[in-house]
Amino acid sequence: MTIRVLIADDEALLRMAFSMILEAQPDLTPIAEAEDGATAVRLTTELRPDVVLMDVRMPGTDGIEATRQIIRTCPRTKVLILTTFDLDEYAFAGLKAGASGFLLKNARPEDLLTAIRTVAEGDAVVSPRVTHRLLEKLRPHIPDATTTARDERLSALSARERQVLVQVASGLSNAEIATTLRLAEATVKSHLGRILHKLDLRDRIQAVIFAYETRLVHPA
């Protein structure tokens, strides 16, 4: 199945570069380009791409607001935030707006391609470092163990699924979890898919928050 991608960036050369990288892949197709957030929202509504590569800093409607509008009107479309700046405010705002991932523009082409395929499959792409920084922000708001009721949804998880969820909450990637638990990476992805389904969670980030809120894992 071909993954249809919309590229939103105010720099024409970057749009061209991303498009050329995608066109070289048999399973990825760039279908449109947008130079600002408002155009990205309009084209997404018209074309319904599978993934939007979204720059943060664009004239007019910025990438964060465009992401928020796209997720609200086209919930099946996944948004992958791309930025030159490794700042918490961009990562957290993008994830809060509904983005499925956060990637720096200086990432290797193979990492970009992997990220697009990952979010298209319904998973999230957030580096362990960003995950840990997100948890640092959340820590003051996590209820104390003595006042937190164990979420009944945890009982729906198998022992292995709980193990996988703990590793996800620790910020490990699927490949790292596979190595740690001595599983195939495809098996880890299957477990994660079942975890999200059973817990009625949208993505990896919500799974991390759930694990901490239910005290399945504890802040360091």
Rank of each mutant, 00 (worst) to 15 (best):
E110G: 07
L95K: 06
D86M: 00
K96A: 15
K96T: 14
E121T: 00
R108P: 01
A120H: 11
G101V: 05
E110N: 15
G122F: 10
R117W: 02
A91C: 14
A107E: 00
L95V: 11
D111N: 13
P109V: 01
S127R: 12
L87T: 11
L95I: 15
T84F: 10
I116Y: 06
A115F: 02
L103G: 01
V79R: 03
L112D: 03
G122K: 11
E89R: 14
T84E: 10
T114H: 14
D123K: 15
D88M: 11
G122A: 12
A93V: 05
K96M: 12
Y90Q: 05
R108H: 13
G94E: 01
L103W: 01
E121I: 00
A99D: 09
T114L: 09
D88S: 11
T131F: 01
G94L: 03
Y90H: 14
L95F: 06
G122Y: 10
G94Q: 03
E110I: 12
R129T: 14
K105N: 02
R117S: 08
L95G: 02
L82R: 06
A93R: 12
A115W: 01
P128T: 12
V126T: 05
A120P: 09
A115I: 00
K96L: 13
K96I: 06
T84N: 11
V125F: 12
L95T: 03
T84I: 12
Y90G: 02
V125L: 05
L95C: 07
A107H: 01
D86N: 10
T114R: 14
V130W: 11
D123A: 15
S100N: 13
V125G: 04
D123W: 15
S127Y: 07
A120F: 10
V79M: 09
K96S: 15
L80E: 02
G94W: 00
P109M: 02
R117P: 07
K78Y: 06
L95E: 03
L82G: 05
T83H: 05
A97E: 03
F85P: 04
G94R: 05
L95S: 05
T83E: 05
G98K: 08
V125Y: 12
